[in-house]
Nucleic acid binder design. Sequence first.
DNA 1: ACAAATACAGAACAGTGTTCATTATATTTG
DNA 2: CAAATATAATGAACACTGTTCTGTATTTGT
Lengths: 207, 207
Amino acid sequence: MGIADRKLREKTERRQAILDAALHLFTQQGFEKVSMRNIADTIEYSPATIYLYFKDKNELLLALQTQGFELLVRELGVITSIEHPAEQLRAVGEQFLGFAFRHPELFELMFIMSGPMVAAQACAGANAWPGGGSAFAQVVGIVQRGIDKGVFRPQNAESAALMVWAQVHGLAALHLRQRLVVLPEERRLPAMQEALTLFYDLIRRAL
Amino acid sequence: MGIADRKLREKTERRQAILDAALHLFTQQGFEKVSMRNIADTIEYSPATIYLYFKDKNELLLALQTQGFELLVRELGVITSIEHPAEQLRAVGEQFLGFAFRHPELFELMFIMSGPMVAAQACAGANAWPGGGSAFAQVVGIVQRGIDKGVFRPQNAESAALMVWAQVHGLAALHLRQRLVVLPEERRLPAMQEALTLFYDLIRRAL
DNA sequence: ACAAATACAGAACAGTGTTCATTATATTTG
DNA sequence: CAAATATAATGAACACTGTTCTGTATTTGT
């Protein structure tokens, strides 16, 4: 049955080619230029063909999002060498914010856009968001380890992790969606850095 | 010249009618149903007529956003009776989060959607975002007063205010954009509340 | 009453996501 | 090998979207 798995392999290859083209459009042209027709044009296919590989655009975006999460956890792998939980928490926050700056379009796809999430909801009912789930679990794990070590006060690790996530996501989202225009241009990045530093100061002092 | 100001009055009335129709569509049908044609239909005008009152859709959204900010500062007016800065900060955060729950579509318009901001940038160059600017200044003011009173440690009030804003915005944005599916459904609101409580605990203890 | 300015609408353009009937290709069967 | 069948890809169409342009009423000023 060597012919059957060749068929399957070719199919997944074409599927990946579609995703590659979409990612390329995303990073090069911005996320408003990512249309089914533009994707189809870059891989020299008809728009209708894409629907043989993805149910609709949202499902395509979800697949792209999942690849984005693989990149994020790869970039987040560096912080495992740090031992102190507070420092580890700070490192993961800075890596996360750095990711938002290095890959703004991917960040939009993963944490801001609604499209991929409606596909995720429709696909597997209640709480199926593979990428986000494992990434959040990682933060919860760090907090829990800090509590177990006695570095942080006993508390609900889930809530504390959510606080950390909300802080760093809030900074990234406000920046990416142009809401930091309330600050003079040269103060935006410094203010973000100072806010994050202050936040981790609070954690080190009082969490 | 009674006829000239009647003209002007009628023009602003029609402009407001367009905004009212748009807001009605926003709150009743959701923000993806707000198209120029749908707005035109509800006020029984031609789509082209709207362009006599707004340069484009983004400018219309910006005007709607501004009205949203007026509502927000009205709802935020309650907190002036509180004297302790930390309590005041907590109250403004809870009001802000409550606003996001009571008026999710307005919140999207004011703090998440990109459209209105490109109009704001195009309209008045660098840092013209009337609504957001005054709202943020209010938070900065509370922090600065806390520092002056000796309740908070001496520091950059702007950065601290940004931290507070990012925290509460992060919670709201993660929730509105469905990213809290990482938590079981019944844990989402409690976790948000606990995260916010923990955050203001940290502020009270260590800011 | 006539000229000028204003307000509005219809149609059109280019773009979007999506579906469906049809054609071309590749595989399996007689 | 030839015919039947399954697979892959497409072109055209539908119902939308934001936006612009030209033409037509209506109202204003003289």
